[in-house]
Design a protein around this nucleic acid. Structure first.
Lengths: 209, 209
DNA sequence: AAGAATCAGTAACCGATGTTACAATCCAGA
DNA sequence: TCTGGATTGTAACATCGGTTACTGATTCTT
């Protein structure tokens, strides 16, 4: 049961004692593709470490609109979960499993202690913040500086990199939901990208060229 | 010269020894309104503490477009500067003095040490991250979920709160720059807000009702 | 006081995006 | 095999926001 996390920790830069603590205090959480893993009203004060799979972080408003922010990949943590738990405030975002995924959930009550004791953990947390800030800023860039067709193309490239595959298995409707626009618009723009030889469309998936 | 920072530290929750270190290792930096305080290509590895005044953080792209992200007020620090320095990567943002401001600049080389030694400093830094994340997310909300008129109104309210004044001394052109749109559009929408009795326009400033 | 510069108001137009409606195709289950 | 649901294509239209051009008002400079 704990073989997988041991394997993940093996490759991490954490100190041996920290690895022991992570093993001791954490718990495994599995999520099937499509399942919501973390919601703002989660009571559990836990910080996640992604062991395998792919997760997507979404922002939503009170009217049920939502928009994709960034992916969480193996070895990463969710900076927003950490701050969210720490400060008790709940910002509206949720994390959905894009593929079947495994997480190692650690109580945030350990955070202060680990930060103090382990240099590698400090680096891990701050590096995570840096990465998330960067990704949020890229999201902002694409929303405010680019037209939808560019933003869509960036979104597809992003997914390609995160999944490591040229084939993107999403429907137009799903893409529209993640970019907070409508299906018709996405169909239109995908057609345009196809004409520009940037993608090819197959049924139920898109191929990046 | 150091009276002001002593005063600021007086009101802070920092431990006495930390206050001493901050005093010892920091330096004063003054900025006149309109002046750029921090740019991505700053070599100085310093984290700022805002002592007085008001700063605005802007995001810009390679084409010279820019957009307002959030304000930094007294007692706050710039989370992005911290991570930026720490990880050596430079994300493109810059900080401009909105009013005449005073900053206390501290070398980031102290960060790891202070984080380890002082609980109050850990709380300060993490709280800062939380606040910035929240503000970035609000910025994203307004860009992706709202029409420009709502976004403009939010922007004005934001400024009202940050400055503590109902009078916003900005030209239409300046507002257009910060929202990455054009002057004509802002004039049009301000007129609309005026008709909705949300604001009143005077020469060179706007009054929030 | 005259002229220049800045700022704001307005109209006309256009392209990007959102909306509605309907058709065509494919797939899965009865 | 038939049928209903899901997916995609497309057209027509509405709205929002961006652009250009011009005007009038105020302030600044000399």
């Amino acid at each position: 049961m704990n073989e997988k996390i041991k394997e993940v920790l093996e490759k991490s830069p954490f100190e041996p004692e920290l690895k022991d603590e992570i093993l001791k205090y954490g718990r495994l959480k599995k999520a099937k593709a499509g399942q919501t893993v973390i919601t703002p009203d989660d009571e559990a004060q836990e910080m996640p470490l992604v062991m395998s799979g792919l997760l997507r972080v979404m922002r939503s408003d009170e009217n049920g609109n939502e928009v994709f922010l960034y992916y969480l990949e193996g070895g990463e943590t969710c900076a927003m979960s950490i701050t969210c738990c720490l400060e008790g405030k709940r910002s509206s975002f949720h994390v959905v499993a894009e593929d079947d995924s495994e997480l190692w959930m650690m109580p945030v009550s350990n955070l202060d202690n680990w930060i103090t004791k382990y240099r590698s953990f400090r680096r891990f947390v701050f590096n995570s913040y840096q990465t998330r800030f960067d990704e949020l800023l890229h999201t902002i860039d694409s929303m405010v500086f680019m037209n939808l067709d560019e933003r869509l193309y960036n979104y597809l490239l992003d997914k390609k990199i995160a999944s490591g595959s040229f084939e993107i298995k999403k429907t137009h409707q799903q893409i529209a939901n993640e970019l907070n626009t409508s299906r018709v618009v996405i169909s239109r723009l995908l057609k345009k990208l196809e004409k520009e030889d940037k993608i090819e469309q197959r049924r139920n998936y898109i191929e990046i060229l």
